[in-house]
Structures are given as C-alpha cells and as structure tokens.
Simulated scan of single mutants.
Amino acid sequence: MALKWLFLDMNAFFASVEQQENPRLRGKPVAVVPVMSDSTCCIAASYEAKRFGIKTGTNVGEARRLCPHLILIETTSHSHYREYHNAIVNVVESCLPVTEIWSVDEMVCKLWANEKRAEDALALGQKIKSEIFRNVGEQMCCSVGLSLNPFLAKVAGELQKPNGLVALDEEDLPHRLYKLKLTDFPGINRSMEARFHAAGVRTTEHMCALSQEQMRRVWGGVMGEYWWRQLRGEYVQRPTNERRSVSHTHVMPPELRTPAGAAAVQCRLLEKAAERMRGLGFYARGMGVFARGVAHDKWENHCRFAPCADTWTLMEIMQSLFHHPFRQPKQVGVALYDLVPVKNVTGSLFDDYERRWRLSVAMDGINQRFGRHTITMASSRRAETAKEDKIAFGKIAEIV
C-alpha cells in the first residue's frame, strides 16, 4: 500500500522562534512563559531545557529547580509566532499543498500520486525540511511523518524527535508501534490511559490486538471504532464537531491581583469571548465565571438565559454573577456556552436589544480593522496592563 499523507510538526516551536530571533539564546535552556511568576507553567521548552526534564506544562518554580540557569522568556506578543507560522506554511505550500492546519506548529498534506512511493515521499519530506531551514531559519527544526492516514502520519512524526523523518507503511503495522507508550499516541491522555488500564490494556501491542467492539467499549462509543480503523491504515473522515462553548482565562500579573483588578480583567475576557462568539455566528444561552485565589482555592458561578450575543447584556449578566470571595484573586475566567447558531434565533421584538446588537457588531468591525481594544468597555480599561495577546495553539489569527 502506498504512502498517502505527510504530517509536519515544528519542534519546540515557540522556544525555537525565540532562539531564531535572538542568537544569544541558541544552545541554551529556554522556556517560554505567559508571565514572570513561579506559580505559572511553561508554555514551551527548548530541547536544551528538555534535557533537564522541563516540558510544556512544567511549573516554572519546578523548572527553575530542575535547571537553575534556565532562561525564561515572557510572551508579550504572539505576532512573531504568527509570522513564523505563515512563513512555514508558505514554504510547505511551495513543495506540496497544505490540506489542513491543525495548530500553530502542525499541518497535514495529502501526497500527490507521483509522491506515494516511500523513496519519493521521503525525498519530499527532506526537501520540505531543507527549505524551512534555508528560508525560515536554521533554528526551525521539524519532524515529518509519512503514512497511510493523517493519524498514523502524526504518530510517525512522534517516533523520531527532534528533526525526524519517518515513514510508516503497511508492512510496518502494527509491530513498529509496539515500542510506544499508550500516552505517546495523540488523544490518549492520563485519564484515557486509566480507562485502558481498567480494561486490562497496558501496552500498545495489547491495544492493537483489541477487536473493534472491544475498542469501542474502552472509548465508550464510536471513537473507539475510528481508532481501530485508523491503527490499521484506514482513512476516517470524522464528522465536524459542533462548537459547544467559547471561553477565555487569564493568570493576572501581581499588580492586578485585587478584587477591582480581577473585575476589570473579567470584563476584558468577556469582551473577547463575545466578539469571538459573534464572529463564529453564535448566540449564547449560558454563562459561567470562575476565579482562583493565590492559595489555589476555586470559586465559580453559572446561569442560563434567553439567547444573547450583545456585549452589554452579557456584561450585565456577568456582573450579577461575579462576586468571588478572594482578597487576592490570581486567575479569572469566563465561558459562554450552550451556543445556538444565529440562523436558529428569532429576532428580538425589543428595539433596545436590536440597538445593542448592532453596536456590538460595529465595535467588532472597528477593532478588527484598527486593532483589538480600539473601542472597549470602560469597565475593562484597568485591565490594559494584562498581557492579552495570547499564543494561538489552535486557530491562527490573521496579522492586522
């Protein structure tokens, strides 16, 4: 069976961008963090830092203990990450059309008919790696996986890191997967691993030996069937998931860790969530707000309401909910959920709501054209010191 898919994963992407931009960071242990605080976690770690056991999600205080000479880079903007992402996509497109972008550092391409032989596909993968090195930067290494479907191509890319190039063809399956731990597979986290263990499955070899029905039982539904088929090289076209919520959270800098500062940041987060929701074409029928104190205790509150999408009404709802008990709140968040498409919402009979909706949409247009927060609610002005330009792990925003 011929190879059909190419998967590209940029190695330690965010840390590599920082090392590419700043030659003094090259060859040194680097971690990218959202704020300079030992209580937050590392967003990314360079391979020099990974040798000390530091990885994405490692607590910064623990990372400093593991590597006292670790260099921390605070993300004040993610525009340069978007620029590198776009440059990488352009390089890949010059070699092979990108079928789908999975995240800021991952993409998948369907191979042409004349590229499906193993030697041709491997040569193409090497060409893409070389072109990224030459045109984007010598610090921008990537792993390329080639296989029968996107899932196995991603798994192939995980087999050799960093800077890998691996093909998994039909004759490699399933025995070449056996050296992987269950959690090495995309989609199996610790909780899913526990479900496999509860079913008596502790190795990849055992997982691959499960029947389709056994796999369904472990996963609790049709996802198990998808996995069973994909492990055997089939291409599975999954149905598009319906969006259920839009949410934002923020760990606040020390100067905003007061009730008033938290309220301002919460307003800013709601503005962002509401704008995103309108851009996606939804109304919300529920809202949740939460806060976490410096002692890691948590508070949350929820309510449901008639379909709503204008910022003013949502702000009034949030203000009725947000009465957390913390004198020093550390993190706040807001979620708009139970979303319904605009086309399914009957127009309001009240002129005031219609005016609020039109004004919200007008503000969205101005902010998209002239920059985020060009027009904003007065209640969120104090939050301007918060770093609101977040790293886009998923959808890549356009540079404006």
Rank of each mutant, 00 (worst) to 15 (best):
K28W: 01
R51V: 09
G288Q: 14
V361Y: 08
P307F: 09
L270T: 08
L8Y: 03
G220L: 06
R64D: 02
F350H: 07
S37H: 04
A392G: 12
I88P: 03
T99D: 12
R276M: 11
A260S: 13
H78W: 10
D352N: 04
R117I: 08
Y283V: 01
E205K: 15
H248V: 13
K127G: 00
P23S: 05
I73A: 09
S46F: 02
P341V: 03
I188P: 06
N11E: 08
V340N: 02
S39F: 06
F393G: 01
K50I: 00
L339K: 00
L256F: 02
T385P: 01
A44W: 02
Y47T: 05
E213F: 04
L124W: 10
W102V: 11
E171V: 14
N22S: 10
E275M: 15
L66F: 08
Q230A: 14
E255C: 12
Q20M: 02
C67V: 02
P329Q: 03
A118T: 13
E398S: 15
I396A: 02
V91L: 06
L180F: 07
T376F: 08
L122F: 08
K343P: 00
L280M: 14
A386Y: 03
F52H: 15
P329M: 01
F305P: 01
R216F: 00
E93M: 11
A392E: 15
K181C: 10
M277N: 05
M215C: 15
S143V: 06
G125Q: 10
A15R: 07
T58H: 05
L349Y: 05
F133M: 13
L256I: 08
A153W: 07
A397F: 12
T76F: 11
V92N: 05
M252P: 00
S103D: 06
V345I: 07
F326S: 00
A45W: 02
G286L: 11
L152C: 07
L168A: 05
S147N: 05
R358H: 14
V218P: 09
P97Q: 07
R369W: 04
T311C: 09
R292Y: 01
V251C: 14
I375K: 09
M107G: 04
Y178C: 10
H373R: 14
S320H: 07
F133V: 10
N114T: 13
M215I: 07
L70H: 03
E213L: 12
I73H: 09
N301V: 09
A392D: 13
P23N: 02
